Simulated scan of single mutants.
Amino acid sequence: MTVTDRSGLRQFEESGFAVVRALFGPAEIEELCAEFTALHAAGPVPGHFEPRATETESTADPLHSYPRVLHPHRISALSLRRLLDPRLRDILRTLLGEEPLAAQSMFYFKPPGARGQAPHQDNFYLRVEPGTCVAAWIACDAADRENGGLEVVPGTHRMRVFCPEEADPALSFAREHVPAPPGLTAVPVDMAPGDVLFFNGSLVHGSGPNRSPDRFRRSFIGHYVGRSTQRIGGFYRTLTMSGDPVALPESGGAGPCGTEFTPRAPH
């Protein structure tokens, strides 16, 4: 999909998501992975990356030593460049119908054996008013059913934000679970490194555990809103795609994308 690709825009409008293949090249993805490999090796960064591993815990739950990284664009110049990349800006401007603002970045390591994230809707957390957000999910490894690739529920982008149920903690690191509404079914989105999945903030999506013996499923995610947005959750600080801060009034009930279960005690 490009700015002028009407079929990509039509799929986004009809299904709530669209994949742009090979938007980022191999060298760009390798650079991004190397950045987060170095961050992991350097240890905790309070408020952004806080592994809590002991040797015993790490064996029990890989996410104790490889938790997601929140807002890496605030601590990494490379992450900020990726979040504000002009290629993303061009596509987001088409999808949103106006100039985008960047609201959040995240990086998921998702090592072998890691739990997934139960189906959920991003705007449950961002609380964008009016309208919703759009995610740009950049695959840094091949993502498929074996290693916990994303699944989406087409059509849910036209629905309200649901009140979630509680997820199964054996399968999901986050508490919230939104089942597929009656008559709708989750479909997998297989991706190669450098592919980008764009999806509506009301689209129900999630992933299962990484059941591969030796494959990570790393990804870099940005969340964006339209320039006409009037309110957003206080956890988020919007930027223009040139990097200038844009202060927006705060909406209530917001939080990070996924409320994590209380860490399990070591075995």
Rank of each mutant, 00 (worst) to 15 (best):
L80Q: 15
R52G: 14
A60H: 10
K110S: 05
P72V: 07
C133L: 14
N123G: 07
H48A: 08
L84K: 09
F107Q: 01
R87K: 15
E57G: 13
A118Q: 00
I91D: 01
A118F: 01
L101C: 12
P130M: 07
E129H: 09
S65I: 03
L92P: 03
L78S: 11
A102F: 02
L126D: 02
M106Q: 13
E99C: 06
F124I: 03
P119W: 00
V128R: 00
L88P: 00
K110W: 10
L101K: 05
H48C: 10
S76Q: 11
G131P: 01
L126E: 10
Q121L: 07
G47F: 00
E55W: 04
R52L: 13
L83I: 06
G113M: 03
G113A: 08
R74M: 08
Q117G: 09
A53K: 08
L126P: 00
F109A: 01
F49Q: 01
H71W: 05
L101V: 11
L96E: 09
R82C: 07
A77R: 15
A103T: 15
H48M: 08
L92K: 12
H71C: 05
E98Y: 11
K110E: 11
E98S: 13
L88W: 02
L70C: 03
G97M: 08
P119S: 08
N123M: 11
T94F: 00
S65A: 15
P100K: 12
V128L: 01
D122H: 08
Q104V: 06
R52F: 06
T56A: 15
R115I: 02
R127W: 09
E99A: 06
L84Q: 09
V69F: 09
Q117S: 14
H71G: 01
E50Y: 05
N123P: 10
S65M: 08
E129D: 12
L88D: 02
S76G: 09
L96K: 11
A53R: 12
T56I: 13
E98D: 12
Q117E: 12
T56M: 07
G131I: 01
A102S: 10
G113N: 12
R74L: 13
R82P: 00
P86Y: 04
R81K: 14
F109I: 04
P119I: 00
L101F: 10
N123I: 08
R127P: 02
A102L: 07
A114F: 02
R68L: 09
I75M: 07
V69K: 01
G97F: 10
R127Y: 04
D122L: 04
L84N: 09
F109M: 03
P119N: 07
Y125W: 10
E57H: 07
E50W: 05
G97R: 11
C133D: 14
A53M: 05
F107E: 01
P111L: 05
G47Y: 00
R127A: 11
D61E: 15
R52M: 13
L78C: 05
V69M: 06
E98K: 06
G47I: 01
S58E: 14
H71N: 14
E50K: 07
Q104L: 14
R74Q: 14
A77V: 05
G97A: 07
P51I: 06
P62V: 07
L83F: 03
R81D: 14
D122E: 15
Q117L: 12
S58M: 11
I91N: 03
D85N: 15
